[in-house]
């Protein structure tokens, strides 16, 4: 662990500390932090430490597990299950892009054009949350049923032949294929995209649009140069709120997918509950966490919205 000491202290600049204005309020911020911190320590930090410890243990249920610092578990887990990792990232990315494409126009409409319908549409966006996640996902089995109207329509338009060729669907069905899983993910996480988009679009001053028009910008240019850049915080937080849970999701793949659509969440679940290989399951969880953290960091850096999120 020598790297820890060699690295410079992360926040070195010793800015002169302003003298506390009033001594009495000095500890107030800490007291205010306390409940949240306690919550995080008990329900986040401790389980995380416990999980980290599990991931470097070896043993079996009957003999018990001991910490043996067996880091090879990480490599074994990754080399065995990298296809599921890759698949999770791909599906989550596809669902996120779809959510953005579907959600942006809707959020735009609600923010600028909906007028008195705004509240109604917002309620409609949130309404699916009144039913359970499982029920909503199961509903897609009816929507995409083999002899349901959608599959019939797609078949008669020969669209399924094309998607079959691309490997997105199989034969003349949609259920139990990657397409069904991505559809389910998109549907289930769409509100998480719309809500932040709406909040950041709604904050944009309408007069900016007028000003852009006065400066001879066409509507498309206005959108490209004014609206979209200003909505970036919404785009970034929306994509994060969609991508992160979608990458770890296992319900959609379990119910709508097949053997070749299993995501990393399914692997972790079966390792924990069925195979009872706790170290591998814990290691997989950590790899997933690290991978998502890494990708999100790069994404935030790239999108240049660090201070907006």
């Amino acid at each position: 662990m020598p790297t820890l000491t060699e690295a410079p202290p992360p926040l070195a600049p010793a800015a002169p500390e302003p003298a506390p204005a009033r001594r009495r309020g000095r500890f107030t911020p800490y007291w205010l932090l306390l409940p949240g911190l306690l919550w995080l320590v008990v329900f986040f930090a401790l389980p995380l430490v416990y999980q980290a410890s599990t991931s470097v243990q070896t043993g079996s249920l009957e003999e018990g597990y001991k910490v043996t610092w067996h880091f090879a578990t990480y490599w074994d887990a990754f080399s065995q299950y990298w296809p599921q990792f890759l698949r999770s990232v791909l599906y989550a990315a596809a669902a996120t892009v779809l959510c953005l494409v579907l959600g942006y126009p809707l959020a735009y409409l609600i923010a600028f054009r909906a007028g008195r319908w705004r509240n109604l549409i917002m309620v409609l966006v949130i309404a699916p949350f009144f039913t359970s996640f499982l029920i909503r996902t199961l509903a897609w089995k009816t929507i995409l049923a083999d002899d349901g109207p959608i599959v019939h329509a797609l078949n008669s338009l020969h669209i399924l032949a094309l998607t079959d060729f691309l490997g997105w669907t199989a034969g003349d069905r949609v259920l139990a294929t990657p397409t069904a899983v991505v559809c389910g993910l998109t549907y289930n996480f769409l509100p998480f995209m719309i809500l932040p988009l709406y909040t950041s679009l709604e904050r944009i001053d309408g007069r900016l649009h007028e000003a852009a028009g006065d400066l001879y910008a066409r509507p498309a240019t206005t959108f490209r140069k004014v609206t979209f850049p200003l909505s970036m915080p919404g785009v970034v937080s929306g994509t994060l709120l969609t991508f992160i849970p979608a990458a770890g999701d296992y319900v959609n793949s379990e119910l709508l997918g097949s053997t070749d659509t299993r995501m990393i969440g399914n692997v972790i679940q079966s390792q924990f509950l069925t195979v009872m290989d706790y170290p591998t399951a814990a290691a997989l969880s950590f790899i997933l966490m690290a991978a998502i953290l890494g990708m999100v960091t790069v994404y935030i850096r790239r999108s240049g919205t660090e201070d907006l999120v």
Binding site: L4, A45, V49, Y50, A52, S53, Q57, G64, Y278
Partner: peptide, 28 residues
């Protein structure tokens, strides 16, 4: 960001490698 940055260096240490090895699951 500032909290994350400050935490990054210390996080592992605070998590406590020592506590890690103290855990373990006894035979069932």
């Amino acid at each position: 960001r500032s909290l994350l940055r400050a935490g990054a260096g210390g996080a592992l240490a605070v998590g406590g490698l020592g506590t890690l090895s103290a855990c373990g699951i006894p035979p069932a």
